[in-house]
């Protein structure tokens, strides 16, 4: 089964709980030189009271066709067949940042030893049937991990609703 991280921007408030839970899970100390794996943003458009505000939480998107894998000259990155996560073994990482340059989301980071580190989807937890730390903590269930099948089903429903709505107007 492969999984997809989904953010419901209607429920996210950009509070940062996911980012903190990620640092707690992965023992990341940015002040000691560690990168962070997950970031939260607030994007405001316009200046009036009803102008849109978007809250975001972003990390590695675990792309199906992950450009970082192609970008790495040392073969550190690969897709995990069981979960679909983009996982890595940085033993042979030469710290060249090619993966980071290839990534459209700036997901790969470089730690105290100069080697690439990034979100591994909390793969050990997911293998045991637990949620990734960021998903587990989310106070509003804005962030979720869903299977490919469920994701596609959700999309089909969304498209059907949209179609029905357009037919109505």
């Amino acid at each position: 089964m492969s999984y997809i991280f989904v953010l419901d921007t209607k429920r996210c408030i950009g509070c940062g709980a996911c980012a903190v839970a990620c640092m707690d899970q992965n023992d990341l100390e940015p002040r000691q030189g560690d990168p962070v794996f997950r970031r939260c943003f607030t994007v405001e458009k316009g200046e009036n009271k009803y102008d849109p505000v978007t809250y975001m939480s972003m990390s590695c998107m675990h792309c199906k066709d992950a450009p970082c894998i192609q970008g790495c000259p040392s073969g550190c990155l690969k897709k995990d067949p069981e979960t679909g996560f983009t996982v890595y073994d940085n033993t042979n990482c030469i710290g060249c940042h090619s993966c980071a340059m290839a990534c459209p989301f700036a997901a790969p980071g470089f730690g105290r030893e100069g080697k690439m580190v990034k979100c591994d989807g909390c793969i050990e937890r997911v293998r045991q049937g637990l949620q990734p730390a960021c998903v587990k903590v989310c106070p509003y269930q804005a962030l979720s991990l869903v299977s490919q099948e469920e994701f596609e089903q959700r999309n089909r429903e969304k498209k059907a609703r949209l179609l029905a709505y357009t037919a109505l107007i």
């Binding site: 940062g16 709980a17 839970a21 587990k136 903590v137």
Partner: peptide
């Protein structure tokens, strides 16, 4: 982590609690 089924937080935590 938040305790699953706890009367108030139902397994989740806020930013502060996560730290």
């Amino acid at each position: 982590e938040g305790t699953p089924g706890f009367p108030t937080n139902q397994g989740a935590l806020c930013t502060k609690g996560a730290a």
